[in-house]
Design a protein around this nucleic acid. Structure first.
Ligand code: SF4
Ligand code: SF4
Lengths: 172, 172
DNA sequence: TGAGCATTGGACTAAAAAGGTCCAATGGCT
DNA sequence: AGCCATTGGACCTTTTTAGTCCAATGCTCA
């Protein structure tokens, strides 16, 4: 894991299309202008998304790009995987090695339990969610998704406090 | 966020020291050998940790490194920040820009709620935890930490299912 | 049929980050 | 005074990410 600027471009471009009427076709330059993105860079990104079947491209008279599927059916996980490679979520946030239970790094034990929740979250969040709620998803929405994910990932969790430190954290 | 190999070196080195009797002094080469790490690279890492007050260095007769504080008092957040810079946890996992509520990327709304939980987790996990439980932290331990963090981060969370997709996820 | 035009595809350069190495200086200790 | 591991920094290589460019393609309309 560890997403690049290209993923951001992909998401922003798709969100832009999702805000149009359904099945709308938009030219690259218009998408780039509307989302204030660099056109040449967005071009590269949109090509990847087309190849992976998330966008449809059109030539001739009514030219441009359109969504290949409904916004609520495109998860941000798909988008990021299309752009950065399918193994994106197989890799670790902490170190980029492909992980194995056999040769673990020191955080593997912890991460084994956290990653599935993140992946689930990315799977359930869709382009439509981003387009609708903009950049300000409500706390409740996220919270419900997170807790769903947590519930899925750990069906039974008791509380055994084998840990030591209760530091105060500052978070921006 | 987005940790490097150097963080892994730092953690593994500290864990190695934490496994020794308290206040033990170990030479760099021995630490490297015991944890199968490259000595020159570990040297670079240990210097940073010394500067940031996590390690103490000794010269002369009884030379080497020792932990500056008790293992249960060194969070992995501290370690990673010492090595990668204090703004590590201010940055986004998704894009490396420093984040602002004013100029957000499309995932900011979601991430705003997830990040604090991760940071809390990293703050509460200590070198002692890693040394004791090795690479196989039990599910229960992690689960309790995660749920604590979640509870802290979102005191009140109702469930408003404004989301659309319930895809099946594959996780390794 | 052919001119127009945006997508296509890939190569290509540039910049930045990560990973890794080396060596002279330092300073307690014996 | 001499030993020797830490110190501190410079330096290089590799990898990844970012960004640019151009010729080819193929649909539509005149
Ligand atoms: S061993 Fe575990 S924590 Fe380490 S890089 Fe692999 S998946 Fe991540
Ligand atoms: S705006 Fe939010 S999601 Fe985007 S990079 Fe900054 S913190 Fe991360």
């Amino acid at each position: 894991m560890k997403m690049s600027k290209e993923s951001e471009y992909g998401l922003m471009g798709l969100v832009q299309l999702a805000k149009q009427p359904a099945h709308a076709v938009m030219q690259l330059r218009d998408v780039a202008a509307a989302a204030s993105l660099l056109e040449p860079f967005l071009a590269k990104t949109f090509r990847k998304l087309t190849v992976h079947g998330l966008l449809r491209s059109h030539r001739g008279r009514e030219r441009g790009y359109s969504l290949a599927r409904a916004p609520h059916d495109i998860s941000i996980r798909e988008v990021c995987e299309a752009i950065e490679g399918v193994d994106l979520f197989q890799r670790c946030i902490f170190w980029s090695n492909a992980c194995s239970d056999a040769e673990p790094c020191p955080l593997h034990g912890m991460w084994r339990h956290v990653r599935p929740q993140l992946v689930t979250l990315m799977e359930r969040l869709t382009i439509e969610d981003l387009a609708k709620h903009g950049t300000s998803l409500s706390r409740d929405n996220v919270a419900s998704l997170v807790s769903q994910a947590a519930a899925d990932a750990a069906a039974a969790n008791s509380s055994s406090p084998a840990f030591t430190r209760k530091g105060a954290i500052h978070v921006r």
